[in-house]
Nucleic acid binder design. Structure first.
Lengths: 164, 164
DNA sequence: CGAAAAAACTTCAAGCTTGAAACTTCATAC
DNA sequence: GTATGAAGTTTCAAGCTTGAAGTTTTTTCG
């Protein structure tokens, strides 16, 4: 019955599931982000980007170079510079010179940073759990499995673990 | 074999799948966003937020009020003000007074805005399809179905269709 | 060795984003 | 009607974000 669909139409039809899933991902992500952002502000007087940085640093006790950090967070280099600057002022983060390379800087959590982040991380888990309460664990695993194929590009910067 | 896990540990274990799926969503979203952002700049000399606004307006020929727009995009009111300002300057968007309510403004695509957006939307579909090429359509539908349970809050602002 | 290129950062302007505070207009209840 | 509050926006400061351009250090290789 479907006679002679124009090329452009059938083409965009083929593209539709992926665009739709993209829009859905975007929507859910924004919803969760908003909750996390609001709670971070209300309960810890901090921001999501700062939390993201702390989370990344918490995973690497030995610290991360600025470039490794921006790669892990998928943001620009210049961006990280400013955030780290403020975190250093607040005493949550420490800059350590890399021996043998005067260009690079290692960034690491301070004791205070670790403690602060521990509290935030626990709260963060609760918030996310609350927003996603309608997702059974099995469904989560399923989504994780399906989406695991994405972003398997040849790019890999040694320290960035892709287990997320 | 598993003897007496401390309460906090078992609690965070229960929370883990949801946090993990959240991190995965965040990761995939950032990857796709980056691609779309770069291409929008390179090929259309525009930004993602601008594209988002045009996309929202394209869905509603009759236009959207500023507040409806910010609700649809899930961003703050003040944010939309600035973006619309620039879009108006560029002639892509039109502000129309709402008759019967001097507080509100209706925002609508101009002819030029519609044409520009049409080109961008086609390209956008191609980019997204390319990034998500490893996701079979069936997998997309599955993810969409699973995530569809999220964000079913009692909030509903009439014009905002949640079919995404 | 000594250029030339690459790597690691920082700086900067322009734009995005938020939440709070203000402002105008509208609706409600005395 | 008129005060009181709600609704719709805009303004603003602070912070985030990007991409481009610039600085310093390291590496490559002729």
């Amino acid at each position: 019955m479907s006679v002679q669909l124009p090329d452009e139409l059938s083409a965009s039809s083929a593209a539709r599931p992926r665009v739709r899933v993209w829009l859905k991902l975007l929507k859910v992500t924004k919803i969760v982000e908003q909750v996390v952002r609001e709670n971070l502000r209300a309960e810890f007087d901090t921001t999501l980007p700062r939390f993201d940085v702390l989370a990344a640093l918490d995973r690497f006790e030995d610290g991360l170079k600025m470039s490794e950090l921006s790669a892990a967070l998928r943001v620009s280099n210049g961006n990280v510079t400013g955030i780290i600057e403020r975190l250093v002022i607040d005493g949550l983060v420490l800059r350590v010179p890399v021996e043998g390379d005067k260009r690079a800087t290692l960034v690491r959590l301070t004791q205070k940073g670790q403690e602060e982040f521990a509290k935030m991380a626990a709260a963060h888990a609760r918030w996310v759990n609350a927003v996603l309460e309608d997702l059974p664990p099995a469904a989560c695993e399923q989504v994780i499995g399906i989406l695991d194929t994405i972003g398997r590009a040849p790019k890999q910067t040694v320290k960035v673990d892709d287990n997320d």
